[in-house]
């Protein structure tokens, strides 16, 4: 157990020393500044107009969800790319030979790196999504419902993708892993839209395909469930925002994604245990 924390600590130390966190937070702040400016200008414009309460709430939800959508997308990229060479890069450079010759389990190496990266990725997601919510609340006074649950779903999404990226690194080269891991998310993204369009157009085959894709790559369905939960009930019913889910993933998808993440972590450990260094 101590070795896991030692590897996690090294990962955090590396992230801090290499200024990865600094760069990520700087970009996040830049994003929040742009978002805050946009919300402020839009809110000022909305106050000048004579619009109904429902219309205004719908627009507020749309703004907040757009911000969270961007925060989620940036966090997804961060979660995939940050650990993409965590294992493969160290195997290629020979660093891993020194580590694996120490009196530690190979599982300790993978779990320690997983924990260290998870802390960094979670901090990034919290900073961005928390920032969006804070901006929204401080300018417009709007706080979406089910914030904790929704951010937990987003956290599960990035955890899943980060775990896939680490698992890929135990088997593939860095470039191959980066392409495969982003592709894994891309499939989920496209599958999600196929499902939405299928639901909106009443095309059952497209909807079924989207659901099947979500089972293979459940990342995007977690965001769709989160965005659904973030909308007040009356806005959902009106279908007033572009993020309204025409096909809402079942809560069972959360268990599926959680199990998927766990299985990928086991795959990462087993794969690295068998890896010839």
């Amino acid at each position: 157990m101590m070795a896991i924390f030692t590897f996690a600590r090294l990962t955090l130390f590396e992230a801090r020393r290499k200024r990865i966190l600094f760069a990520a937070i700087l970009c996040g702040v830049a994003f929040l500044v742009v978002f805050a400016t946009g919300v402020f200008l839009a809110w000022r414009e909305l106050l000048r107009r004579q619009i109904s309460f429902v219309e205004r709430q719908g627009l507020l939800v749309m703004f907040t969800l757009a911000g969270l959508y961007a925060a989620n997308f940036l966090s997804v990229l961060f979660a995939v790319l940050l650990p993409v060479d965590a294992v493969s890069g160290e195997i290629d450079s020979g660093v891993m030979q020194t580590l694996a010759s120490k009196p530690v389990r190979r599982a300790d190496v993978v779990l320690g790196k997983w924990l260290g990266h998870w802390i960094v990725v979670a901090m990034y997601l919290m900073t961005l999504s928390g920032g969006v919510l804070l901006v929204s609340r401080s300018i417009t006074g709007f706080v979406p419902p089910s914030v904790v649950g929704a951010i937990s779903l987003m956290l599960l999404e990035v955890t899943l993708l980060m775990t896939v990226s680490i698992a890929g690194g135990t088997r593939f080269s860095t470039v191959t892993n980066g392409i495969a891991s982003l592709g894994f998310y891309g499939i989920a993204f496209v599958g999600g839209w196929v499902e939405q369009i299928g639901a909106l157009g009443g095309i059952q085959s497209a909807r079924t395909l989207g659901v099947v894709v979500s089972l293979i790559s459940p990342a995007d369905s977690l965001w769709r469930l989160a965005s659904y939960n973030l909308q007040p009930a009356f806005v959902r019913d009106l279908g007033a925002v572009v993020f309204t889910s025409a096909s809402v993933p079942t809560p069972l998808m959360v268990w599926w994604a959680g199990g998927f993440t766990l299985v990928m972590l086991v795959v990462a450990v087993r794969s690295f245990e068998k890896r010839q260094l």
Partner: peptide, 25 residues
């Protein structure tokens, strides 16, 4: 074990590297 062409995380100092490996022991 000293592998051929020893490499490690180059953002660490020499002292930090030894501390890290000591902790693994």
């Amino acid at each position: 074990f000293l592998p051929e062409h020893f490499r490690f995380h180059d953002s660490l100092t020499g002292r930090e590297l030894l501390r890290f490996h000591g902790r693994l022991h």
